[in-house]
Each structure stands twice: as C-alpha cells, then as structure tokens.
Amino acid sequence: MEAAESATPVLDRQPVLSLKGISKGFGAVQALTDVDLDVYPGEVVALVGDNGAGKSTLVKVLAGVHSHDSGTITFEGRDVRIESPTASQQLGIATVFQDLALCDNLDVVSNLFLGREVVGGVVLNEEEMEKRSWELLRQLSARIPSVRIAIASLSGGQRQTVAIARSLIGEPQVVILDEPTAALGVAQTAEVLNLIERLRERGLGVILISHNMADVQAVADRVAVLRLGRNNGVFNVRDVSYEEIIAAITGATDNVVARRASTTAAAAAPAATQDTETQA
C-alpha cells in the first residue's frame, strides 16, 4: 500500500528524529526489519499496528531499553546510538510508558521531580519545586486540584497528566506516549488528547502509540503503520479513511470493514443517480 503524499507545511523542515532501516531481532525472532520513521517538530505521528507488529520494540529502541541491530538513528541532524534510558533522556527523548511508573504514596511535586530534585544547600527546595510544578501544569492547561495531593487520589486522566508533565522536566524535543488513553473514560480521554495538542503547540515532536483510531484521527497529523515488524504505509490523517488504516494494519484491502463500506457506497450510488435524473 502506497503512503499518502504529504502536503503538511511542517514536513518541509528537517525532522527532529529520523529512523532509517532499523532492525532488531531476539534470537530467531525478527521483531523489526528495515523500519523507517520521521518525526518533525510540532507534529503528532501515530504509530499503529496489530499486536506483535513491532510497536513496543521500536519504542524501547528509542527509549534506550534495547539497542538496534542495524540501521541509523538521526537526532537533530546527527547520527546517534541510544545505549541506555539515561542516554535517551539526555538526548532529548522522553517516553511515557503505559504503566506510567508513578508512586501512588507521593504527591504530584514529588513524582514530577523524582530523581531530579531541586536542592538548596543540604535540603530540598520544596518551594522552588512547587512553583515549577504549577508553571508546568499551567503550560499544559492541566486540571490538577493541588500539586500536594497524593497520586492515589487522582483520576486516570490526571495521572496521565502528571506522567506527561514529568516527561517535560528535562525539556525534551520528542515525547513518546504509549497508549495514553487506554482504560480511560470519555472525559478523561478528551483531557489527555488536549494535553497532546498542548505538546504540539510547544513545538515538540510526538509519537503516539494507540489502538484507538478515533483518538488517532482526532490529534495525529500522520499515521505510520507497522505490520509484522515492517513499514506498511505512512499516511496524512486528513487524506486517509478509517478503512484504509485498518486495511494497512491487517495487510489486506479486502477486509470486513472495507467490504461493508463498499456495499454501502454501491447501494447509495443508484439512489444518487435516480435523484439526479428526477431533477433533470
């Protein structure tokens, strides 16, 4: 399936992150084979695919959990190799995994600055950390009642907000969100999608991993499809239909959804023709 031609002005610029020919194997299992992916500043790229398509492996390569076997990773115009999670963060890539990795017994401030505490002399500068926490949450238009509330008291959407805010402490250029709306209600999902919009407005490149096509079509600029560890299309969201994305994910244009859409279109065509003849 051919990728849609890009018409988005932001893509005329140099990508902040570019993957070329990335491959990764685990013994006899080849998880990724010659995968390409470009992420530009100020755009949201949705990474979609069926279970086992290679999405998680690709994210872990970028997060420094796994080293790729072959291919090149270019970040801000220079070739890099991401050997560890620390190297990924220092490079400017922040990853928010699906489990969020938050400490329920700590408050929002403590979670935001966990491992990056601001120290004044020999004690923690609680006032500075609280001030910076509010500034960061306001930039994201986040709905958190207090930065001193325990994480255990927050809703699913609010927890996702804290996890995303924490990823921005190191001022990254690329943010990877792994299934950020999974298991969230309608209102909480809308809250997280608004956060993604805020990240784009800040000029960050966002990689969104999601199985929810409604979320993808709501916030993504482009959709990159992985199938069996390989690229299977990169599409502009405004130029592609839900059925075409599903077809790329499943690897077949002749699927149930596509057939249903074709049947509906075929049934509508005679009616439209009859209306035209009647008006004539």
Rank of each mutant, 00 (worst) to 15 (best):
E243V: 03
T8N: 15
A31M: 11
G77I: 04
A87H: 11
N212I: 04
G203A: 11
L58T: 10
R116C: 06
N236F: 01
D178P: 08
R227F: 09
T161I: 01
P9S: 10
A261C: 05
V48Y: 04
V80R: 10
V48Q: 08
Q139S: 14
T95E: 08
A165E: 03
G170S: 14
V118S: 05
Y242I: 05
I93P: 01
S84Y: 12
E243M: 02
G156A: 11
N231L: 07
G229C: 05
L199I: 05
R148S: 12
E135Q: 15
E5F: 11
P9A: 12
A214K: 10
Q139P: 00
I245Y: 06
L226I: 00
L58D: 01
L91D: 06
V35C: 06
Q274S: 13
L137G: 02
E83V: 13
V186N: 12
Q217T: 09
P15M: 02
V216D: 02
V219A: 09
V119T: 13
T276F: 12
E277C: 01
R227Y: 06
P41A: 10
Q30F: 05
L199W: 01
D221I: 04
S23Y: 04
R166P: 04
D50L: 12
L62F: 06
F26A: 12
V223F: 12
L58F: 03
N105W: 12
R78T: 15
N51I: 10
N111G: 10
P270C: 11
Q279P: 01
